[in-house]
């Protein structure tokens, strides 16, 4: 399995990767990183991952802009979820309408992240 983690914070990318590696389901997955939606878009177009975990608020291209662009181009990966500190009902509705499967709130635990992923599968 190939997982793309998109976040402008290197620290948060590390935390998400560490959380995934601690799970039985995703511990052996190949993990790729992108620093914003723009870089992620290029990576997804070149070699689509199985799962994308994206921050919402990023420079250059936000997470929701990334997902909307992927939808316009018909290349949304099988599973796309947001990991964000600003989880609101409005954001949830926008994310679901654009094709996301879940939102995980920061801070999260490895268990809550794995639970959200299990619910999306």
């Amino acid at each position: 399995m190939k997982i793309l983690i998109v976040d402008d914070s290197k620290a948060m990318r590390m935390i998400v990767m560490r959380a995934l590696k601690s799970t039985s389901t995703y511990g052996d997955a190949e993990m790729l990183q992108a620093v914003d939606g723009k870089e992620a878009l290029g990576m997804i177009e070149a070699d689509p991952p199985d799962l994308v975990l994206s921050d919402w608020n990023m420079p250059e291209m936000s997470g929701i802009e990334l997902l909307q662009t992927l939808g316009e181009r018909g290349i949304i990966p099988p599973t796309f979820g947001f990991v964000t500190s600003e989880h609101t009902p409005e954001m949830y509705d926008r994310a679901m309408a654009a094709g996301a499967q879940f939102l995980v709130s920061k801070p999260f635990t490895p268990e809550s992240l794995e639970g959200a992923l299990a619910g999306a599968a």
Partner: peptide
């Protein structure tokens, strides 16, 4: 710098999440 920015982002994001109505969070 990255880590403190992310801590501020999480604190601010959680404050924003409790506000009524649409709001935007800066980087």
């Amino acid at each position: 710098i990255d880590a403190v920015g992310e801590l501020a982002n999480m604190t601010g994001g959680n404050v924003k999440a409790q506000l009524e109505g649409p709001h935007a969070l800066s980087l």
